[in-house]
Structures are given as structure tokens and as C-alpha cells.
Write a protein that binds this DNA or RNA. Structure first.
Lengths: 190, 190
DNA sequence: CTAGTGATGTGACTAAGTCTCATCACTCTA
DNA sequence: TAGAGTGATGAGACTTAGTCACATCACTAG
């Protein structure tokens, strides 16, 4: 038998998602989340910087995956091709569990301004990570940030579709398709 | 003589900017800001939703200006031309006082993660306002959000340059130029 | 068997943000 | 001109996010 029940972090995330769904984010205290997970408030804050973060844990990993994907792309790849490669790496990392929790997660976030703010910031962090990785390949600043923006847009659109139980395509497929659409729309713009 | 000293809101903004600059955002309590402005904590929160908001007041106005600018653009205007017109309207609304406070404002924001998060969210609100105004003109979704993103990017780049005391160009000129550069970079992308 | 070590609990503390009620200076109206 | 609003403010209590110092406890390495 373990010293403590394992997976404290995961238990906290699930408790939080459940409670936010049942009562709303504002009506749920951190102490209550911790209690449902069999822990205390202090332990919650050892795992997450703040109350919002419990729904966004692990996003640093996504930034890393994107950056690594860009770095690993062949020198001959155009900026958008490097972004596409990075998206393949990122999307491949998603699990069925993440898909299953997706709809509830998106609903809870959509219902609360604080959470939308955090989500927006996380999105911007992904863009920044991609931009910086592209810059290191010698891509000019403006081009890099545009390509990064397209990549993250594609990912978010794809994630929204993937999470729909009716969807039958892979997250990777959806993401490639979304990036293609965005590239086309971009070409039509200028 | 007035019932109360006028311009409570403005006094709060200035007190906050001063104190954040002197002591840092985290080391400044709302009660302290209110005190320096000759008011109390409760009054502060009657003027601003939260502590961050004191540095971002009036941004709803910017969203409205952008949306109105897009709506007012001639039917014949392309999406990017409508965005350019909206930027002209927005940038024309900025005052010398805003330019003077700019550097301190940007410094304070750059030094604090909470404030960066709020700034990112405000930026996203501008993009959303522009996107929605473009959609109402019949611009397809993807095109609308891309054009909106370009517009807000241009504005932010321009604002950063304008606020530099060494700069001699108008905010409007800088913004037009930034949008041109972004359009060019976009064309090179696809 | 003992000295760590790392995750957790405890409880006190600060400050953000909310809320209710009182005040006060001015305005409008009879 | 008295008296009834009115709107911005003050006072102060209250909840909860977030921090911190210190204790505990179960396991591990020597």
C-alpha cells in the first residue's frame, strides 16, 4: 500500500472539473476541491499556481512539443511546413481521456471570464513558443509570428472539432486540414 | 466648489501607475492606491472591476471604435481595407497624454504576469470585435479572423513604436505602415 | 536501526473582492 | 425655502485566494 493515495494531482483536476460543472467555478472554493480529492487547500496550491491553473495543467508540455517539432523539421521545410510538423507532434500526444474530458472542459471555460482569460493567455504562450522556435531557424520575425498564429489557430479549431463525439477523424487529421484551410484563406487575403 | 474632488477615476489611474512604478504591482495594495487618490478601497472597486483593470480602463471604447470603423467602410472595401479604415479611426483617438504614459504603462505590464495576462485578453477582445464586425459585412469566418489578427497586430506594433519618445511619426502613420508590412509578410507565407 | 526525504497537514496571516448600511453634498420640486 | 430625492462616497464586516513556517508521517538508503 502506498504511503499516500497516488495521483493526487489527477484527483484534484477531476474533483475541480466535477465541482465546476455542478456548481459553477465561482461557487466552488479551493478548499472544497481539495476536500473532495481527500487533500487540503495547501496541497492544492502545491500542485497548481492558482485556482484557474487546475484546468490548464500540462500546457507547458504543449509549448515544448511545438518548439521541438519545429526544431526537428528538416532545414528545407518552409515555415508553414515546420509548423505543420510541429502540429503533428503535438496532436499525436493527445489521449482518449483528454478527448473525453474535452466537452466539459470547454463548457466550464466558456462559462467563466477568469477561465477564458487564462485560456487566452495559454493560447498566446503557444504562439510565443512557436514564434521563437521559428525565429531560431532564421525565419524573419513577422513571418514567424504569422505562421505561429496560423498554427495555433489550426490547433484550436481542430481540437474543438475533435472533442465532438460525432467526429470520426484523428486530431492530427483535423489539425492538418484546419491548417490547410487557414493557408488558403491567408493566400486569398493579400 | 465641487461636492467631491472631481476626476476620481483618473486620480486612481495615476496613483496606481505611480505606485506600481515605484514599488511594483505585487507590493502595492488597492487600499494604498485609493488612499493616495484620497479615496477608499470600496470606491476603487466601484470604478474598476479588479486591481488589474485600473491599467486597462477604456479598452471597450477601442473595441467600439474598431467595430464602427469597419462598419463605416465602403462596401467596395476589401477586408484588409476595412481593417485599415478602422485602424485610422482608432489611432486618431489617441492623445498626447496617452503617449506620455505609454512607456511607464508598458514597463509595468511587462514586469508582471497578471498584467500580461489581462493585456493579452484585452488584445483578444479587440480581435474578436474586429472579427465580428467583418463577419457582419459578409466576410467569411476564416478571412475575417485573419484580417482582424493582422489589424490588431499592426496596432500593437505601431503603439510600441509611437510611445518611444524618439519616434516622430503619427500613430496613424505607424499603424498603416505596420499593416502594410504584415500584409507583405502574409503574402510571402502562402 | 537511524538519518534523511518528500509529500502532506495545520493554522495563522495578508490582501482581493463583495456587500450592506450610513453619510453627505448637491438638485429638484412644491 | 423646506424637504424629498440622488449619486458618489465612507465604514466596516465578511469570504476566499494565496502564502508561509512548522509539524508529521511513511518510506528509503546507509
Amino acid at each position: 500500500m502506498a504511503r499516500w493515495e497516488p495521483n493526487a494531482r489527477e484527483r484534484l483536476v477531476i474533483a475541480a472539473l466535477d465541482l465546476f460543472g455542478e456548481q459553477g467555478y465561482d461557487n466552488t472554493a479551493v478548499a472544497q476541491i481539495a476536500e473532495r480529492a481527500g487533500l487540503t487547500k495547501a496541497t492544492f496550491f502545491r500542485h497548481f499556481r492558482d485556482k484557474r491553473e487546475v484546468l490548464f495543467a500540462g500546457q507547458e508540455t504543449h509549448s515544448r512539443l511545438l518548439a521541438d517539432g519545429v526544431t526537428a523539421a528538416p532545414d528545407s521545410a518552409t515555415p508553414l511546413e515546420a509548423v505543420a510538423a510541429a502540429l503533428d507532434g503535438l496532436t499525436a500526444s493527445f489521449t482518449a481521456a483528454q478527448r473525453a474530458f474535452g466537452p466539459r472542459l470547454l463548457t466550464v471555460i466558456a462559462d467563466n471570464a477568469e477561465l477564458q482569460e487564462r485560456a487566452t493567455f495559454k493560447r498566446a504562450s503557444l504562439v510565443a513558443a512557436l514564434t521563437s522556435a521559428l525565429s531560431k531557424r532564421g525565419v524573419p520575425d513577422l513571418t514567424a509570428s504569422l505562421a505561429a498564429e496560423l498554427g495555433v489557430s489550426a490547433f484550436h479549431r481542430a481540437f474543438g472539432q475533435w472533442v465532438d463525439p460525432a467526429s470520426e477523424q484523428t486530431l492530427t487529421e483535423l489539425s492538418r486540414h484546419a491548417l490547410d484551410e487557414l493557408r488558403t484563406a491567408t493566400a486569398a487575403l493579400a
